[in-house]
């Protein structure tokens, strides 16, 4: 399972500055926190109108986590 890589792939495919995308994972026993950093001007692209894109990434992340009986939280950082 590659939650970090999953978020990284999606983020890079959405933004104008893929080189500025950084993803880190803080792994807990049950819960993992995935931190996504993008360039300031790309923030809107990963969040989307009314947060729709961010919600879509979170939905996919939780589906992938369910598969391995875990929880994942996505934090988007400027």
């Amino acid at each position: 399972m590659a939650m970090k890589e999953l978020v990284e792939y999606i983020a890079k495919a959405l933004v104008d500055n893929p080189d500025a995308v950084r993803v880190s994972e803080i792994e807990g026993e049950k819960t993992s926190v995935i931190e996504l950093v993008v360039a300031k001007e790309d923030l809107g692209k990963v969040i989307g109108k009314q947060g729709r894109t961010a919600r879509a990434i979170r939905t996919i992340l939780s589906a992938a986590s369910t598969k391995i009986n875990k929880h994942s939280v996505l934090e988007i950082i400027e």
Binding site: M1, E5, L6, I10, I60, A63, A64, K67
Partner: peptide, 8 residues
Amino acid sequence: TILEYMGV
């Protein structure tokens, strides 16, 4: 690619 990273 998304499905692959999800392990599906």
